[in-house]
Design a protein around this nucleic acid. Structure first.
Lengths: 140, 140
DNA sequence: ATTTAAAATTAGACTGATTCTAAATATATG
DNA sequence: CATATATTTAGAATCAGTCTAATTTTAAAT
């Protein structure tokens, strides 16, 4: 689904020179990673790329963020920044059991219209935390 | 309004031994500070307390958080943790002009009821960012 | 193809916020 | 008062992330 040529083309389309390092990282982000930290990315890279500096991982992610290929998420559930290939507007749910981060549609949150009269809102950050319900859970 | 005796009593009521350092910091938090960082607190302390270690500021804040006297806020608008004496449930608006953080009533945010069927939500973090409208601003 | 310029990568030093350590001091209890 | 316990302290250590300056790669122009 994501061969090198395709990934390379997507990088070019975003104005990012497709170097071997960038192709590798973007390929990983698109195909395997779900909200990885730099640590996660570096660990994958160390297993799947001849040799890459940690600085390159950081540089590459910054480049991707600037090119709007990924979103950088600094969420209060962790001290580590995570990256998201879902660049559309959305929110997150942090599953306290699994540690997993789940994307939520922005429509699940509604703001009081009175707020818009008082504030000009440019960003809405929402993180919900909790656990996922199993079937037949009581949800009073 | 917040004399030493009162502050001291409040600390005791929360199960926190009222040492001079703790009284000073809690007094500052209650009376002058609005969403201060550790840096802000240390700066005030350096002006208003004979001598206090930075470690004590951190220790004291941890103690207060554990005693639920203050909330610790790690918001994505800054790399610095801020502290809030408003321990009720609430959200925040970050004013990008002034850098000010404004408390919002939790009622300004409504979650889709379908979410509650899928998730058991224990925490709701909301940070809005933008600017404050002046009177007569168009708010289409 | 070769030179030259620009961009990307690199290792390792550095920073800033926070935590840890272990000693010193203060407080509470028997 | 003696002694245990809690608190404070200075400074070292940690951790995520950034910066620096040198090297390597890539692109552009002869």
């Amino acid at each position: 689904m994501y061969d090198t040529i395709t990934v390379s083309r997507q990088l070019k389309a975003a104005g990012v020179h497709p170097t071997a390092q960038r192709i590798a990282i973007y390929h990983y982000l698109l195909s395997q990673a779900k909200h990885p930290t730099v640590e996660d990315i570096k660990a994958w890279v160390d297993q799947n790329f001849p040799k890459m500096s940690l600085a390159t991982v950081y540089n590459t992610l910054r480049t991707f963020v600037e090119a709007k290929l990924v979103k950088e998420l600094k969420l209060p559930h962790s001290s580590k920044t995570v990256y998201d290939t879902n660049v559309r507007n959305h929110h997150h749910f942090f599953d306290e059991d699994s540690g997993e981060l789940i994307d939520l549609d922005p429509a699940v949150v509604t703001l009081d219209p009175a707020l818009k009269r008082k504030y000009l809102i440019t960003h809405i950050h929402v993180l919900l935390r909790g656990t996922q319900r199993r079937k037949y859970d009581d949800h009073a």
